[in-house]
Design a protein around this nucleic acid. Structure first.
Ligand SMILES: NC(=O)c1ccc[n+]([C@@H]2O[C@H](COP(=O)([O-])OP(=O)(O)OC[C@H]3O[C@@H](n4cnc5c(N)ncnc54)[C@H](O)[C@@H]3O)[C@@H](O)[C@H]2O)c1
Ligand SMILES: NC(=O)c1ccc[n+]([C@@H]2O[C@H](COP(=O)([O-])OP(=O)(O)OC[C@H]3O[C@@H](n4cnc5c(N)ncnc54)[C@H](O)[C@@H]3O)[C@@H](O)[C@H]2O)c1
Lengths: 216, 216
DNA sequence: TGGCATTTGTTCCTATTTTCACAAAGTATA
DNA sequence: TATACTTTGTGAAAATAGGAACAAATGCCA
């Protein structure tokens, strides 16, 4: 498969670049907390296991943010990255499947830092429907299309069993969802104007096992 | 950073290959359930968004498993992949931090398919220590080194707050842990004989937001 | 048995990604 | 102001990954 490439105004870069921008932002925020005003590409990437040239090139796709001989102004770069990533405005998301994982996510406060707000959740289990977790009401999955459309939600997490994940995906997309973070261990099929990101824990563990099993 | 490359007996391939092997295995198991005996590289990769040539090349690093004109015998390839990945024997793992995420993982049965067994869990919270979740006793994190060494555990998950994750990592490594799946949003530093894999949900969400925000 | 259809394993080529290396720009010091 | 450092931004080179294409096997059927 061709690696998905992103092109904005004739400038092309890979999704890897975008992932790294998130990592830069995370560390820049830590630096800001420590009241550090300026940081060089060298210093910031020492913490991250990424080369300084990579850092500079990643940023160069979006503009010139540094000052030669000095480095990057931490607060300014944070603002710029938030803008580039698009988290300078609020993103309301949905969660489908409020089981063990889904309810952990509903209770997690850490997303608010990125302006991500879980607005609604869906389940099929009558015992769960109507309950409120962390201020989020669990809706009947039967109302999925209606609620997603009404709330104009564009992004959803899938935390259902894998058997139903494709069906849920189809329904989400038909209701207007354009991005899905999928926790179910299944490769979802979607039109190519819908973005999917998979978190596959078993896959990650198997990779570690492979490495342990084959090391010298 | 150089992409980590894996070399076994003069044959080199990337970690991406290993991740894809996990995906192949997952789909092969589904085929086996449906009693399908043979599958071609063409058919299996249609489900996966990977090119047939990639599939064949990935396998070719480890041997010849197909039959020309026929395809791959599903059951046989499953066995081979389990062997290659190293999940033909049991892997006992530990979980550090039994909060919302950690307890969801303790209750998750899905890892057993991969011969992964959560053997022990640790927390610092007195209210949690001693409790048993899904047959797994929560130990005092003070006993981390002792228990890990005694049980000869080599793989651990970190589900603690990010502030303590590096300290926990250092202790795990000194106790003999060689692979870590990290859920805390922080870049862990380890010697290069220790393998780290990160699951960073915020990062994945930001990537989706970037894509939604920039699409035409 | 021979011809046709299918599919693998692998080579070679192409595309993408990462790193190198250096001019340009800025700082510091005297 | 001149000189010695720093550090960025970026084109060019190197390293990696992905894919097309084809010979070599295998099966099927007349
Ligand atoms: N729990 C973990 O630690 C873990 C780890 C790795 C992967 N996963 C994956 O994440 C997903 C969720 O895991 P979990 O442990 O939370 O499972 P779970 O069984 O605890 O929760 C699943 C939830 O989905 C709901 N559901 C089922 N069908 C539905 C439908 N059609 N519409 C809406 N809701 C529906 C169920 O009622 C339940 O509340 C699974 O695909 C699992 O494989 C979980
Ligand atoms: N919950 C989620 O949905 C979610 C999503 C993304 C990332 N994460 C990350 O996963 C990690 C865990 O998240 P959570 O929501 O389960 O948090 P949590 O606060 O519910 O759980 C953390 C657990 O770690 C324990 N702990 C704290 N210090 C410890 C120490 N020194 N040794 C051992 N245990 C210790 C706490 O007692 C608690 O039980 C965090 O780093 C979080 O950022 C969580």
């Amino acid at each position: 498969m061709p690696k998905s490439k992103i092109c904005i105004r004739k400038i092309c870069f890979s999704v890897e670049t975008v992932k790294r921008l998130s990592l830069y932002l995370r560390d820049l925020r830590k630096l800001a907390k420590k009241k550090i005003q300026f940081i060089s590409s060298n210093k910031i990437t020492q913490l991250l296991n990424i080369s300084p040239a990579q850092f500079r090139k990643d940023l160069s796709y979006f503009g010139e943010f540094g000052k030669r001989g000095v480095g990057y102004e931490v607060e300014k770069l944070i603002k710029k990255l938030e803008e580039i990533l698009g988290i300078n405005k609020e993103w309301r998301i949905a969660v489908v499947g409020v089981g063990r994982l889904g309810s952990a996510l509903l209770r997690f406060e850490g997303f608010s830092k990125f302006n991500i707000k879980i607005k609604t959740a869906f389940d099929i289990d009558k015992k769960k429907i109507g309950k409120v977790i962390n201020g989020i009401k669990i809706e009947d999955v039967g109302n999925l299309e209606r609620v997603i459309k009404k709330e104009k939600i564009k992004l959803s997490l899938i935390c259902t069993p894998p058997q139903v994940a494709q069906d849920i995906t189809n329904r989400l997309v038909s209701a207007g969802i354009r991005g899905i973070l999928n926790f179910a261990p299944v490769a979802l099929k979607v039109a190519n104007n819908v973005f999917i990101s998979n978190v596959d824990m078993a896959c990650e563990l198997e990779q570690l096992i492979f490495l342990l099993n084959n090391e010298r």
